[in-house]
């Protein structure tokens, strides 16, 4: 029995046709690179997604402007969120728990892009890193 999948590894979006050959073995066609085969295997047996989100920026009070009362509309100026991502695709069923952990973070500024904010998240061996330097 064959199954149609769309590879989401990169923006190419190859249309894959996956057939189960023998026990656990897959035959994949329609992929333009070897990553399509890896994607098909993972998507069928253990789906994963890269998680991108933002964490709260804990700004140290160094002047009046930086100390605007919380809740006050403060569009523009220093960003209030630090963008983050998982360093690898994360098990799909654990994504909600990962998001909860990211939203509980408070990132001290300044921060450099690439800084590990959550090491070995939920015991997966995957880290969560900052993806923007805010100085």
């Amino acid at each position: 029995m064959s199954q149609e999948l769309i590879c989401i590894t990169c923006p190419m979006g190859c249309h894959l046709t996956v057939e189960k050959v023998a026990d656990g073995e897959l035959s994949v066609s329609g992929n333009r690179c070897p990553r399509g085969v890896v994607y098909a295997r993972e998507e069928l047996f253990a789906p994963k997604r890269t998680v991108t989100a933002t964490a709260r920026a804990a700004r140290a009070c160094s002047g009046e402007a930086a100390c605007a009362p919380s809740g006050e509309a403060r569009l523009g100026g220093a960003p209030r969120r630090v963008p983050v991502r998982s360093t690898a695709a994360f098990p799909k069923d654990k994504v909600p728990a990962l998001l909860e952990a990211i939203y509980a973070l408070e990132v001290e500024l300044p921060v450099e892009s690439g800084k590990v904010l959550l090491a070995d998240a939920l015991g997966t061996g995957i880290d969560v890193i900052a993806t923007r330097s805010i100085r």
Partner: peptide, 19 residues
Amino acid sequence: CIHNGFGLIEFNEELSGPE
């Protein structure tokens, strides 16, 4: 654009927009 998918051709890796 904090999501990933940028730079696959340019850097041969998947980055977020700010990276």
